[in-house]
Design a protein around this nucleic acid. Structure first.
Lengths: 228, 228
DNA sequence: AGGCACTGGTGTACGCCGTACACATCGAGT
DNA sequence: ACTCGATGTGTACGGCGTACACCAGTGCCT
């Protein structure tokens, strides 16, 4: 048993490497994520990792597929709309937990099994709910684009965080505020107002998502009779 | 005059560096884009660039703001809906021309003047069209998310290009096709169908965009009477 | 039990990256 | 003509991903 533990600790395997990778990337972000630091957190020399992953790209691919596994599958049981909303929320939650994964989820290389499973469930849910083949593509495309884009904004946009003061303060600091008020009056108004009333990513996401889902709902009938 | 040309060729300036950077990044992608190769295309030693940009991040920021400058401002003259659609299309076109810019458009660092100009015009168009302050934020957030996300998908998704055969062929090649048909029947169906009828990014983008715009339109009245 | 192949961890080294720092050059203003 | 500031150069450093040769321990076959 102690021996087993020793073994578990001493001998690596692909899963251990991938999970350690996710943890590290969550901590330090994609830039600070290097093979060397990952090896260090595993108490191992960098080259040891290459016995379990082909290279850094393969490592990231594996990590990404685990993230895909964290996304709940849409089931058609309680209606496509609820299923789609739940999946979108779950996907965004996963991308919020693992910000480094945004932009890697649909990489060029071969999609992993969890990725395939997820998309298969998505198609299945929509097709079984009576969407035409082409409409299914439309819906998937639009919803995924929205979720990815929102995650991307949330990842990179320091613009208006809870302490949006950061932005305003920075602008003021460079003496830009006064000038900005003249050059960009509308933007300035919104930023100031936003600073006053706060910005809630969750609510913002939900609003846009419902917009899309309602739009899909409204057009479902006309689409059903469409070609294809 | 010949002297002037000589000078223009010999002496760099920030704009020249930035534009050469864009051209190079368009060609080789963000991965192959290094200070050294950029210096080489300019016929100059790498360190020479640092007289005109603070560092690579500053260089990319400058390049990104030029891309922002390529996006047409929304004018409220012919209605907010048309203006928003034109802007979204223009933004996506810019991101398609400069795929490396996706994910950098809303960087953490100080947004550039073209970025600010663009967002100011956006806010102005919506506010002047009668949208409430909070609704303006909703609309901007949702539309931008969609455009970014679509560009991101288009950038990374090899899934179904004009020659979607790539994907299917690859899957087949590894003997996965048969197995995949069992594991992921819905996905397989859609991929095959898609291969038959083709996939048009432009149309796909337009469909989702209209979905959002119509949704906004429908909810505009109720939103107007909302709080804030 | 003894030998052996195989798997997985190590050490060293290479080429590329961004960029700091000291130096050379050159054009403009006195 | 001389100086001075701005611009390009040369060299060098530390960090990155990773190729390659090597070593250690484990499980298997006899």
């Amino acid at each position: 048993m102690a021996q087993r533990e020793e073994i578990t600790r001493r001998r690596l395997n692909r899963q251990a490497v991938l999970h350690a990778g996710i943890e590290l990337a969550d901590d330090v972000g994609i830039d600070g994520f290097t093979m060397r630091t990952l090896a260090q957190t595993l108490g191992v020399v960098p080259m040891a990792l290459y016995k379990h992953v082909a290279n850094k790209e393969d490592l990231l691919d594996g990590m990404v597929d685990i993230v895909w596994g964290e996304v709940t599958e849409p089931g058609a049981l309680r209606g496509w709309k609820r299923a789609m909303r739940e999946r979108a929320v779950s996907l965004r939650a996963a991308l919020t937990r693992h910000r480094w994964a945004v932009g890697l989820m649909e990489a060029h290389s071969r999609p992993g099994p969890q990725n395939l499973r997820q998309h298969n469930a998505m198609m299945g849910c929509l097709r079984e709910s009576g969407f035409s083949f082409r409409t299914t593509v439309h819906v998937t495309s639009a919803l995924d684009a929205y979720v990815y884009g929102f995650a991307l904004q949330q990842k990179t946009l320091s613009f208006e965080t809870p302490e949006e003061s950061g932005q305003v303060a920075a602008a003021t600091q460079q003496g830009l505020a006064a000038e900005a008020g003249e050059l960009y009056p509308y933007l300035m108004e919104v930023v100031v107002e936003l600073g006053r009333s706060g910005y809630d990513y969750d609510e913002e996401f939900a609003v846009g998502l419902d917009l899309l889902l309602d739009g899909i709902d409204a057009l479902r009938e006309s689409w059903r009779t469409d070609r294809s």
